[in-house]
Amino acid sequence: MRLNYYIMVAIFLCISTAGEAQQRHNVDGAFFDRVSYKVAIGSKIGGSAPLPIPKEIRKVKGYSPHYPFFIGAKATHAIDSKWGVSLGLTFEGKGMNTKADVKNYKTSFNANEDPTANAKGYFTGRITTKVQNLYLSIPIQATYQVGERWSLQAGPYIAFALQKRFFGEATDGYLRNIEPTGEKLNITFAEYDFRESVRTIDVGMSLGTNYDFGQRYFALAQFDYGFNNIMKTGFESISFGLHNIFLNVGVGIKI
């Protein structure tokens, strides 16, 4: 239900921006004369991944995206015939399901009932991870018209997580207590849930291109890279940073 609500809000925002765009387009001479509006929708592929892939991850056994969509609107102010600056609003999913074999993966677990009971050690075995985050992103981009049809966009974005989910299982392995020489504790199946540790704000950089076809339509491809670890500072259960890295592909319309 919450999800539906967010989608409604996003669609409403897109439509109202578009509506506003049409009104203002006709105002003479002023700032808004040089502003154009676009809406776009599409799919994406990527994940919340460590970069580079740490040596603890031995084998990626499976991957599928989760919530692979975005829907957004953008207002672009033309500075001259080539350059412009744009401000947008995008509602998007950033999620994935992965299954990986890890070796000597340094981690810590908290027992739910007692946060003081903190087990630390090295896990070897299989880890499945399910990330299901929804963000409302605000990209600010410089745009550059390369040719008649092609344009490039680049700039930072700030994203606010509307839904945070990060959970999974550790299976078919063992934990060495504290150090790799510590007591060996076999783990056939253990669930974890780190939703509390997902950051609400994600800041990153986008780099993309648009290709116009027809009068009003365009195709787009955009690469997003999150600068910050998606997990909060002090989160120790995963010893490396996870970054939102996604490639978006979609179509849009100029209003």
Binding site: P54, K55, P180
Partner: peptide, 21 residues
Amino acid sequence: LLVPLLFLQGCIKDEPLEMEA
């Protein structure tokens, strides 16, 4: 979907030296 999987697989580093004794 296989493309990023292969890409990820390609990024996997060489097996590190054993830490257990």
